[in-house]
Structures are given as structure tokens and as C-alpha cells.
């Protein structure tokens, strides 16, 4: 089980690092074994930063991320390598994940060199073939090719196959289908869902697309400017969104099952950093906010079974 507890990421910006940029503020949630949790947010919500912190690609400023009870920030050397045996990530841009001047299957060779240095060729080839088949690729068609000779969908499957070579239990999937062609998107999405079923893989599915989050996961976390504003079971979130941001998101997202309602959406640009009050204060409809919202950031409270929201209106 992966657990985030009060995780924050603060970047120092400005000439002498004098300003602070809160990319992620005090985020806590967990991904139980064998579950898919969607992390939903727009650009700048900090969703990618959270993924990168879980993968130890970006250091945490404060808080802890623990995997099966172990604080991952303490891992070094062999222990870190061992962590990577169990936790892997796939990113948004399939082409950028490959070194363009090498063949695509080099990513497997690196895994072999680092994790299975002693393995015999035959055993390795068998293993590789198994994981390629598990992601629905025909080894004969895809090995020994350059990245640009493969489609975006094939490249993403490659990355998933790479993760399967290890004993992975947890996968961070960061917008992995947003750059794929519409007709192949659903296949990669189905593949993830199938891996969850067949291998008990836990997945943190990071996306900006609400319908994808609904399709694949039972639980979702809604992120706005680095803060969790609402989380819970997808059914509850989608049917009875409580936070004004979630409601705005549900109303604004283009859907195929219903047309946009005449809801005014705010066009104001990104406002200055809010350090004390509610992060959504300046976009929140006047009628719903109070003076208190500007000074106190509402904590995430449980409003019903499996449904949490961070809004002062639901604090009692």
C-alpha cells in the first residue's frame, strides 16, 4: 500500500530563491493494494509533481510517502533499487521517454543490465517475450526498431512491458494516454485495468480527463493548486460533487452524454499565491464563500462514507 502523509513540495523561485512556490501542499491519500486511484487535476495542480515524488524523481519538501510501511525518502543505493523493482512509472509523452538515437528496446537492456545482470540470454528472452505478450505486443513486430518506427500506443505498451519485467506492484501512470490517437487510447486504458485485475497491480492514474478517471478507477482525488479539494469514491464524486471547484469542473468538462449548461466559468487568470486561506477563494462564487475562507484553509473532512471535501461549508 502506498501512503502519502502531509506531503508538500515547495520550490524556491526568484533571484535569490526569495519566493516560495507551493506546488503541492499538505497532500494525504492512500492507494490500497490492487486498486486504481485517479489523481485528477488541471495543469498546475501539482499532479505530476506528486507522481514524480512517489517515483523519487523529485525530492519531498515535507511530509512522508511510505510504501508498505517504509518511508521511501530514506531509501538509498540497493534499497532504492529494490524500491524501483516494485514501483515504476510511465509518462505522458511516449516519444520523449525514449532516447531518440537508440533503438526502442534499449529500455529493456538497461533493465537487464541493472536488475538482472547474471541472467542467461535464453531465460531473459523468455521473460521479455512474456511481458511483451502481456501488454498485447508481438515481439517479432516491435523489437529491434527505433522509437519513430513505432506508434505512440506501442511505445506506451513498451514502457508498461518494461515495468512488468520487474516484480512491480505499483505503477504511476501520468497522463499516459493523452498523447495517443483516439482509436488506440482505450486499448491502453483497458490494458491497465486488466493488469490490475490479473496481477493485482496498484495504479495511480494521473489525468485531467474526468471521464477516463471514471472509467478506470473506483476512487479519485481532485487536486487544485497543490491541494486536495475533494476525494472519495468516483460514483460519489461524479454524482454529488460538493466542492465548488469539482462542481465547476464537472460542468465545464466537455461530455458526450450531455451539453454544456449555461454556467458562467471564470476567465480570470492564475491569481497570486494564497498561503493562508482556501486555494479556491478567488474563483469561488461570491455566494458560497465567506470572509473566513480567506483566512483559514479548510481541512479535508469526511462528509459521508467514502467522501471527503475541503470546503468551509461542510465543516460542521
Amino acid at each position: 500500500m502506498l501512503k502519502l502523509d502531509g506531503v508538500s513540495k515547495v520550490y524556491r523561485v526568484g533571484t535569490f530563491g526569495g519566493k516560495e512556490l507551493h506546488a503541492v501542499s499538505n497532500v494525504s491519500f492512500e492507494v490500497p493494494d490492487g486498486e486504481v486511484v485517479s489523481l485528477i487535476g488541471e495543469s498546475g495542480s501539482g499532479k505530476t509533481t506528486i507522481g514524480r515524488m512517489i517515483l523519487r524523481l523529485t525530492p519531498i519538501t515535507s511530509g512522508t510517502i511510505s510504501f508498505n510501511g517504509v518511508d521511501i525518502s530514506t531509501l538509498q543505493g540497493e534499497a532504492l533499487k529494490d524500491y524501483y523493482r516494485q514501483v515504476q512509472g510511465v509518462f505522458q509523452d511516449p516519444f520523449s521517454s525514449y532516447n531518440p538515437i537508440f533503438k526502442a528496446d534499449r529500455i529493456f537492456r538497461i533493465v537487464r543490465e541493472e536488475f538482472f545482470p547474471g541472467m542467461k540470454d535464453q531465460e531473459w528472452n523468455g521473460k521479455l517475450e512474456d511481458s511483451l505478450k502481456a501488454v498485447g505486443l508481438n515481439p517479432a513486430h516491435v523489437l529491434n526498431k527505433f522509437p519513430h518506427q513505432l506508434s505512440g500506443g506501442q511505445l506506451q505498451r513498451f514502457l508498461i512491458a518494461r515495468a512488468l519485467l520487474l516484480d512491480i506492484q505499483f505503477l504511476v501512470a501520468d497522463e499516459i494516454i493523452s498523447m495517443l490517437d483516439a482509436s488506440t487510447r482505450i486499448d491502453v486504458l483497458n490494458l491497465l485495468a486488466d493488469l490490475k485485475e490479473s496481477r493485482g497491480l496498484s495504479i495511480l492514474f494521473i489525468t485531467h480527463d474526468l471521464s477516463l478517471g471514471y472509467y478506470i478507477s473506483e476512487h479519485a482525488v481532485i487536486l487544485y493548486r497543490g491541494c486536495v479539494v475533494e476525494m472519495g469514491s468516483t460514483d460519489r464524486l461524479y454524482n454529488t460533487p460538493l466542492h465548488p471547484y469539482t462542481r465547476m469542473l464537472m460542468a465545464a468538462v466537455p461530455r458526450l452524454d450531455k451539453k454544456w449548461e449555461k454556467v458562467e466559468v471564470e476567465l480570470r487568470g492564475k491569481q497570486s499565491q494564497i498561503t493562508t486561506g482556501c486555494v479556491y477563494y478567488d474563483r469561488c462564487p461570491e455566494a458560497e464563500r465567506s470572509a473566513d475562507c480567506l483566512t483559514h484553509r479548510p481541512p479535508l473532512v469526511q462528509v459521508e462514507d467514502d467522501h471527503f471535501v475541503a470546503c468551509s461549508r461542510y465543516m460542521e
Binding site: 514524480r52 524523481l57 532504492l80 509523452d93 532516447n99 529500455i107 538497461i110 536488475f115
Partner: peptide, 24 residues
């Protein structure tokens, strides 16, 4: 991202610099 991928494969920084970045 291919550099991140190499890091997630447990590659050392020095190797990443010379086998992933320099060739590009």
C-alpha cells in the same frame, strides 16, 4: 523523460550522463 526512466532503472548519475545525455 528518458533520463527519468534511466534513473528509475537504478542507473548511476555518471552513467546516465555519458550513456544517455552525451550521445544526444
Amino acid at each position: 523523460e528518458f533520463v527519468d526512466l534511466a534513473r528509475m532503472s537504478g542507473r548511476s548519475s555518471l552513467r546516465i550522463v555519458f550513456t544517455e545525455i552525451a550521445p544526444n
